[in-house]
Simulated scan of single mutants.
Amino acid sequence: MDKYVEKLQEIFDEYKFKIVIGLVLCILLLVGYLIFIQKMDNSHSVKATDTQPTSLSKNGTKVKSHSNEQIFVDVKGAVKNPGVYQMSNNMRGSDAVNFAGGFTEAADMNHINLAKKVTDQEIIYVPLHGEIVGLPKSDSISDNKQPSSESPASDSKGSAVGNKVNLNDSDKTKLQTINGVGDKKADKIIDYRNQNGPFKSVDDLKNVPGFGEKTVANLRPSLAV
Rank of each mutant, 00 (worst) to 15 (best):
M1P: 06
D2E: 13
E10P: 02
E14N: 10
E14A: 11
F17D: 13
K18H: 08
K18T: 03
I21F: 13
G22M: 05
L23A: 12
V24M: 10
G32P: 01
Q38H: 02
M40C: 00
K47M: 10
D50F: 04
S55A: 11
L56C: 03
L56R: 09
K58A: 09
G60W: 08
S65N: 14
S67V: 08
I71Y: 03
N81D: 11
V84H: 06
S88I: 01
M91Q: 13
G93C: 11
A96V: 03
V97A: 07
G101A: 06
E105W: 04
A106Q: 12
A106S: 11
A107C: 10
N110M: 14
H111C: 11
I112P: 02
N113P: 04
L114C: 07
K116L: 15
H129S: 13
G130S: 15
S138H: 15
I141R: 11
S142Y: 12
K145S: 08
S148D: 08
E150S: 10
E150H: 08
D155E: 04
K157P: 00
N163E: 07
V165N: 02
V165G: 00
N166P: 02
L167D: 01
D183K: 14
D187R: 00
D187I: 03
D187K: 03
K188E: 09
I190N: 01
Q195R: 05
Q195S: 12
N207Y: 09
V208S: 08
P209L: 07
P209N: 13
K214D: 15
K214M: 14
T215W: 03
V216E: 05
P221E: 11
A224I: 11
